[in-house]
Nucleic acid binder design. Structure first.
Length: 424
RNA sequence: GGAGAGUUGGCUGAGUGGUCGAUAGCGGCAGUCUUGAAAACUGUUGACCUUCACGGGUCCGGGGGUUCGAAUCCCUCACUCUCCGCCA
């Protein structure tokens, strides 16, 4: 969430930026927030004064008891009764205000970076780069779901039987291809300085709140009700939460982590051809990269991460484009996001395989990840993350783009992990 | 799942109702000494809210309660450890 101090000092700027994000009620929300905060501080002052008086009396009573002056001590006790009654009332007001302020703050999204274009939805995203050449396919080329069936490498019907839609079963070379991609991505991550993490696949409520999945996206997560755990929608959640409530040493920055995990998403409200085949799943595999750094370096790190993601796609030989997301399409918690989309030649469409974001201090404020700056002052870190990469759509594009009459060619960078160079 | 014991500042570890935000040691930082370093000695060393500042307030796993006063007593939840049971 945003920092209250910052909002207080930059009211007009905040309202202006929220408009770019298409936030419905910037003016009202911010003004209400500041009003509540003023009230809260006023009450806090009263509460502190009250407490101070009580503390003073308690101390006196303690002294009197020590001196053996019991009578006077007893008589002093009466003095606190009105103070206590008063305190209770103030306390209630104060905590009610605090909850209101917190809820309001949680409902306000991150401010978009100044480079974020205006826009309503994905049609307004800005294409900043287009890399590779779009393959010319023959008329009889197959979409990946047909290829999966033809070579018996991903079985959607079997997944339906065992669990339900969106839980495919990978078989034989299909399973091996998955394993190869995971290993390739993790190896590339390590090569670029990301320490590998194997995180829990379920997290508690505190973790889900800290990275912003709660309360915003509760309906998108699978909930394990018996123990009040949440299946992770991305490794970002457990990996970023490693640093929750920590003060990191400035000389350890930047912190880089990568993790392979399976990801679980309910995708409530998704229908139609978007969900065909591997395009949208309830369970999928992904390697995630996470970076934590100081505010002055976070945008350099964003570039470093973009380069890493682009490098993966280069090596896989997939044509891709990079989008700068517009205010209307950027996620709730992000300040600046670049999406990577690969071209899937048989479907003739772009598929998102990575999203690289700088959250600035928005997540860090909830997480309380801080460092001491050169003046010894506590500062919030900036957090960043990106997919590197999400598997299913990469597989979809690889299958479609690399199909030949002899079979599906495996990119060279994967062959040492697959042990084969063609699926036939 | 059953029984018991714990959870204190960066770490170790005292404190079991009254100047306790908390003894002490380690670690960290600064200084003295030294050509420099180490050692030794001296000092310093938590976070958060509020205030221009002085100051005030909160925090001893989380939440609630008892009391004039709680790290200390009670309730509750979470976690850790030991033993038993079950089990990959």
């Amino acid at each position: 969430m945003l920092q209250l101090n910052f909002i207080r000092d930059n009211k007009d700027l905040v309202i202006e930026r929220l408009k770019v994000k298409n936030f419905k009620t910037p003016q009202e929300s911010i003004e209400k927030l500041l009003d509540l905060d003023n009230l809260r501080r006023d009450i806090q002052k009263q509460l502190d004064d009250n407490k101070q008086k009580q503390n003073a009396i308690a101390k006196e009573i303690g002294m009197l008891f020590k001196q053996g002056n019991k009578e006077e001590a007893e008589s002093k006790k009466a003095q606190t009764s009105t103070l206590k009654a008063n305190e209770k009332e103030l306390q209630e007001k104060h905590s009610s205000l605090e909850t209101q302020i917190k809820n309001l703050l949680l409902s306000i999204p991150n401010l978009p970076h100044k480079s974020v274009p205006n826009g309503k939805g994905e049609e307004d995203n800005e294409v900043v780069a287009m890399i590779g050449t779009i393959p010319q396919m023959s008329e009889d080329c197959l979409p990946h779901w047909d290829l999966c069936k033809k070579y018996d490498i991903v079985d959607f019907d079997l997944g339906n039987k065992i669990t339900g839609a969106g839980f495919p079963v990978y078989k034989g070379k299909g399973a091996k291809l998955q394993r190869a991609l995971i290993n390739f991505f993790l190896q590339e991550g390590e090569n670029d300085g990301y320490m590998e993490i194997q995180p829990p696949l379920m997290v508690n409520e505190a973790s889900a709140i800290a990275t912003g999945q709660l309360p915003d996206k509760e309906a998108q997560m699978y909930v394990v009700t018996a123990d009040n755990f949440y299946m992770i929608p991305t490794a970002e959640v457990p990996v970023t939460n490693i640093f929750r409530d920590t003060i990191v040493d400035k000389k350890d920055l930047p912190i880089r982590r990568c993790a392979y995990s399976q990801c679980f998403r309910r995708e409530a409200g998704s229908y139609g051809k978007d969900v065909r085949g591997l395009n949208r799943l309830h369970q999928f595999d992904k390697v995630e990269i996470v970076c934590i750094d100081s505010p002055e370096h976070s945008y350099e790190q964003l570039e470093v991460m973009k380069k890493h993601v682009g490098g993966l796609l280069d090596k896989l030989g997939l044509p891709y484009r990079i989008l700068r997301l517009c205010g209307g399409d950027i996620s709730f918690t992000s300040a600046l996001t670049f999406d990577f989309e690969v071209y899937s030649a048989a479907q003739k469409r772009w598929l998102e395989v990575s999203s690289v974001s700088n959250f600035e201090s928005y997540q860090a404020n909830r997480l309380k990840v801080r460092y001491k700056d050169d003046n010894g002052k506590m500062q919030l870190c900036h957090t960043l993350n990106g997919s590197a990469l999400a598997l299913p759509r990469v597989v979809a594009a690889l299958l479609e783009n690399n199909q030949t009459k002899d079979g599906i060619k495996i990119p060279e960078c994967l062959q040492k992990f697959t042990g084969f160079d063609i699926i036939n």
